[in-house]
Design a protein around this nucleic acid. Structure first.
Ligand SMILES: NC(=O)c1ccc[n+]([C@@H]2O[C@H](COP(=O)([O-])OP(=O)(O)OC[C@H]3O[C@@H](n4cnc5c(N)ncnc54)[C@H](O)[C@@H]3O)[C@@H](O)[C@H]2O)c1
Ligand SMILES: NC(=O)c1ccc[n+]([C@@H]2O[C@H](COP(=O)([O-])OP(=O)(O)OC[C@H]3O[C@@H](n4cnc5c(N)ncnc54)[C@H](O)[C@@H]3O)[C@@H](O)[C@H]2O)c1
Lengths: 208, 208
DNA sequence: TTGTTATTGTGAAAAATAGAACAATATGAT
DNA sequence: ATCATATTGTTCTATTTTTCACAATAACAA
């Protein structure tokens, strides 16, 4: 069931909102509650669900627990996702120390760096020399990597890890990467995010 | 000239690609070169430009330097953009140490934190107590803030800074924020980015 | 029961976005 | 000069995404 990226991002948002509602003690939810929670429309919520064959109850709405099960299954959250980090610098080590991924079933299992000073095999998230990345990826069947190396090293690093079996890369370097057929990249380009924000703030200021 | 977010992001990409081309010695560029450089179509490049009244030369293409001037002006890059960071923890301090924003005309001028241990007025990017944020925002007319506080503190922090005059927030906390009319939020939700990547990697794996 | 109501699920309409096509035209060749 | 060519700018077309609208129906009330 291939769909557009925004739709899948909405599924993640619904899922997160549902956990919050569940924490508040709710057991069922209506499309318009979810729409409010994520800032969308009720029709879109229902349409998104219908695309994935998720159905609720006429009148009664949706049962939160079973809805969460379905969303989690669609989003691949029924198994722990092991992720590695390439580049244990500022961003890389912030990510490795971050506990927030775990509650999402995402575990950073290792970091890799070329700088010997960054190597530390006994960290909670161990950091290994880059040369070991290939073997690690293969033996642990890692498919997802976070790329946090300097811009200039990014393409080379992505070539290396994709050749070793990485299928999805979350790239922090502010440049486009070429990947072999079958691997995909999501870019986190903070420069562009800020630029974008600045643009819309300026527009809002002018048109007011 | 309000347009869709993707279009503005493309402008940023064109701009970045143009700098690279300029570094390589090019002085002019055709719509299809740019399309290749950012992974789009030539029509779209020309359409994007035409929306903003940017014109080139029949035959001759676009002059890179004047094109860059126009894009930079649209993107608000003709003046240094001062930004503050709220929360000098892992992410916040990685950002404050990052030199990459400067070449984009974006300067992080201060950080703010509630933890006294994080305060340091003599850092390259000084970190002040949160109580000083309001006055700082007002006297320095800061409009853009990066929010890197724990999830639980995020809404409160955004309320505070928006009341003080912040118009645009780049939010790292993985939850939706309410902002007053006139302020906007761009979310950097790494959990969702990873989840999304995992989804598409899974889909690719299944359909292969 | 029967009727009323709330809410889903979906097909059709609308809006937004992207792409193709091509006339207009500047450039360079002959 | 004239012609051929390359490339823009824009209109028209196609696709994608969102929203609307409403029949279907489950829940509840009387
Ligand atoms: N730090 C930020 O706030 C920030 C913000 C936006 C974008 N970025 C981008 O994120 C990336 C990382 O930034 P950073 O600030 O963490 O940089 P950093 O210099 O702190 O860390 C980079 C790390 O990568 C290691 N490294 C270098 N080449 C490598 C290779 N080939 N393989 C493995 N490791 C290698 C270095 O030894 C270093 O430890 C950069 O592309 C940067 O542009 C960072
Ligand atoms: N670190 C990561 O890799 C990462 C990844 C994804 C998302 N995030 C999100 O980014 C945010 C920050 O994460 P972090 O890892 O940097 O956290 P952190 O705990 O390292 O840092 C948070 C900082 O904010 C300060 N703070 C707390 N309340 C504050 C307030 N009201 N005003 C100002 N400062 C306040 C704390 O003193 C601390 O210094 C969180 O929402 C987290 O979920 C972080």
């Amino acid at each position: 069931m291939i769909t557009n990226k925004n739709c899948i991002i909405r599924l993640s948002r619904y899922k997160n909102a549902l956990y919050r509602l569940q924490d508040l003690g709710f057991v069922k939810v209506f499309s318009d509650n979810l729409a409010d929670a994520v800032g969308g429309t009720a029709s879109q919520v229902r349409k998104d669900f219908s695309i994935f064959g998720i159905s609720g109850n006429k009148k009664g709405g949706y049962q939160i627990d079973s809805l969460l099960e379905k969303l989690n299954s669609i989003l691949g959250k029924d198994q722990l996702q092991k992720v590695i980090v390439i580049g244990a610098g500022h961003i890389g080590s912030a990510l490795m120390r971050y506990r927030g991924f775990e509650k999402e079933g995402i575990k950073i299992v290792a970091g890799f760096d070329i700088d010997p000073a960054k190597i530390n095999r006994s960290n909670p998230v161990p950091v290994y020399p880059l040369e070991e990345a290939r073997a690690f990826i293969k033996t642990n069947q890692i498919r997802i990597a976070i790329l946090a190396v300097p811009d200039i090293a990014a393409q080379q690093a992505v070539d290396l890890i994709c050749a070793a079996g990485i299928k999805g890369v979350l790239n922090f370097a502010p440049l486009g990467l070429k990947t072999p057929e079958g691997s995909i990249v999501n870019n986190v380009n903070l420069e562009i995010e800020l630029e974008n924000l600045i643009y819309f703030v300026n527009v809002a200021e002018k048109t007011r």
